[in-house]
Amino acid sequence: MLARPGGDAGRHQLGNLSARLFGRSPAKGADTPLWAAADPSLRGRTGRYFADRAEKDAGPRDPATIAALRRRCASVLVEA
């Protein structure tokens, strides 16, 4: 394995950049996924979206709304 100049400094700088860009430290960002993976009361609850240790709405589920969003995304990609 090659040694990086500065040791772990790069890793710490990346963590600091993450906190500045997203407003959360790596530890805070990992809190909900770790909680969801370890909490026995969530066993078997798949396909859900969690943030800040709470289930959140993951977005539209209406087929017509989803189709409209897909058409809009496709048109934006074609324009680009």
Rank of each mutant, 00 (worst) to 15 (best):
A30R: 09
L2V: 09
D52T: 04
G23M: 05
A38Q: 13
R71E: 12
W35M: 08
S75I: 00
G10S: 07
L69Y: 07
A51F: 13
T46C: 08
P26E: 12
Q13A: 14
S18G: 08
D62P: 00
G23K: 05
W35T: 06
G23H: 05
D57Y: 07
L69V: 03
Q13R: 13
G29C: 08
E79N: 05
K56Q: 15
Y49D: 11
R24A: 12
D62I: 00
A30Y: 06
M1W: 07
A36R: 14
P40E: 11
L14A: 13
R48D: 09
D62T: 00
G59T: 01
D57M: 04
A68S: 10
P26H: 10
R61N: 09
P40K: 03
D39A: 15
R71C: 00
A19P: 04
G15S: 07
P26A: 15
W35E: 06
G23P: 04
A30P: 01
G47V: 13
A80C: 11
G6M: 03
I66Q: 00
V78P: 00
A67S: 10
S75C: 03
A68L: 02
Q13F: 06
R72L: 12
K28G: 04
R70F: 06
R24T: 06
R61P: 00
L14C: 04
R53S: 07
A67K: 05
L34Q: 13
S75P: 00
R4T: 02
R71W: 00
R4N: 02
V76I: 14
A80G: 15
E79W: 09
A19F: 05
P5D: 10
T32M: 09
C73L: 15
L42S: 12
R48C: 11
L17E: 10
K56F: 11
V76N: 07
R70G: 02
D57T: 11
Q13M: 07
L17K: 06
E55F: 03
D57V: 10
A9S: 07
L17F: 10
A36L: 09
F22K: 01
P60K: 02
L2P: 14
P26N: 13
T32A: 08
E79Y: 02
P26Y: 11
G47D: 14
G47P: 11
L69G: 11
N16S: 06
P26F: 13
Q13S: 06
S41I: 02
P63C: 06
L77I: 04
H12G: 01
G47T: 13
A80P: 00
S75R: 15
T46F: 11
P63V: 02
